[in-house]
Each structure stands twice: as structure tokens, then as C-alpha cells.
């Protein structure tokens, strides 16, 4: 290459770099804006408090996700129908389901129910998925207390 063109060439390189960085920043901003606008629509499920706030009408197919409230899980006499309460800490909703639940579905565990509310406000689930969190630990540590804010694990009180 001709050595005399080196200087304007570097300048052009800088221009290209600035242009591309600007383009990336603009596109990134656009996507972030679109995503935050989509926040409500793209959610995979409602939490109980969200479902109550959104006044989900009876009969509309939705997903409801939360924790199975401790002590609320009851099995009916037929052996396949269960009733439980789903909670997100702010609100709690009664739900029923008949069928096979995933192994991970248990009290104080995460669950997502697909179905619809009936007129009385009970959620009639047609399908149940279990949701677990991002923590992984051995079984021996099960009795150990974990603080999700500090990631500290401390011995449970005897």
C-alpha cells in the first residue's frame, strides 16, 4: 500500500468505528426500550398479586405462578384431585388440579399452574409445572439456612 495514504486511512478507520459504535448504541437502546415496554405482555405467567391487580376475568386461560403455600396442599378422596394455595408473598389464591404433578411439585416449592379462574375465584388448573430456583446444594445441607441476599449459608438452629 502507498505509505502516503496512511494518515487519512486511520481517520477513516476512526470514522467507521464511531459510526458502528453509534449504530450499536442506537439499536441497543431501541431493543431495551421495546423490551421494557413488553415487560407485561411477554411475561410467561402472572403472580397471584398481579392476577388480582389485573382483574383476570373467569374463564380466560392464563398461567399462574408462585409458591405452594406450606400446609395448604390437600389430596381429595379420589386420589388424583388436589387443592392448594399459590402465593407470591403479597397475595394468595386457592387452586385445584386433578392429574399427575411433577416430582418437584411440593409445599413451599415453586409451581406454575395453567388454567383459568372460576366464578368463585378458585383457579382451576389443567396443567402444572414445577419451578425451581437458581440454588443447588447437596442433600446433607438441606437443613441448613441459606440467605438469598448475602448467599451466606448458616447452620439451622437445633
Amino acid at each position: 500500500m502507498d505509505m502516503t495514504t496512511t494518515r487519512p486511512k486511520t481517520k477513516r478507520k476512526h470514522q467507521r468505528l464511531v459510526l458502528i459504535l453509534l449504530a450499536i448504541a442506537a439499536m441497543l437502546g431501541g431493543v431495551l426500550l421495546a423490551m421494557s415496554a413488553l415487560k407485561g405482555q411477554a411475561a410467561y405467567f402472572y403472580t397471584p398479586a398481579e392476577a388480582i391487580a389485573a382483574k383476570v376475568e373467569p374463564g380466560r386461560a392464563v398461567r399462574l405462578g408462585g409458591m405452594v403455600e406450606g400446609g395448604s396442599l390437600k389430596r381429595a378422596a379420589d386420589g388424583v384431585t388436589i387443592s392448594f394455595r399459590l402465593t407470591d408473598g403479597k397475595a394468595s389464591v386457592p387452586a385445584t388440579f386433578s392429574g399427575i404433578t411433577p416430582d418437584l411439585f411440593k409445599e413451599n416449592g415453586g409451581a406454575i399452574a395453567e388454567g383459568a379462574f372460576d366464578a368463585s375465584g378458585t383457579f382451576r388448573a389443567t396443567n402444572i409445572l414445577a419451578k425451581h430456583d437458581e440454588r443447588y446444594m447437596p442433600r446433607e445441607m438441606e437443613g441448613i439456612k441459606y440467605d438469598p441476599n448475602t448467599h451466606k449459608v448458616s447452620a439451622a438452629k437445633p
Binding site: K39, G65, Y136, P138
Partner: peptide, 23 residues
């Protein structure tokens, strides 16, 4: 983080790991 999702959050982040050391 943006959306309620079936997939759990990140186990490993800047604040550390939520996976026990032996695992």
C-alpha cells in the same frame, strides 16, 4: 429478570455463586 419465567435466574453472577462448592 425482565419477565416472570419458568427458567430460574442466574446461579453464578458478580455477587458469587448459588451452587454449593462441592457441586
Amino acid at each position: 429478570e425482565w419477565w416472570n419465567s419458568l427458567h430460574q435466574g442466574s446461579s453464578i453472577g458478580l455477587s458469587g455463586s448459588k451452587i454449593a462448592g462441592s457441586m
